[in-house]
Amino acid sequence: MLDVIAEELGHILAEKGEPMPVIGPDTVFLGGPLPIDSLDLATLLLVLEQRTGQDPFRAGFRQFTTVGELAALYQPAAAS
């Protein structure tokens, strides 16, 4: 799932003309090295739902700060 998130983040940053920094499980989405705003992050959640068929937020907002915390919200099957 980390790879999927990194790949889709890369697409979003490429659209903005921004370079993709190296990211890991501990990379924070907002306020860290990623040049993204909350609308970009909302876009990421949308494309992850389209790609995995899963919506971990169906029952409401769930807390996540880092790439690893977001990845953990998706079922492992989605990573394949």
Partner: peptide, 12 residues
Amino acid sequence: AVPNPLTGHILT
């Protein structure tokens, strides 16, 4: 408009 957990909605 698609519901979005972060921004309420987002457009596609």
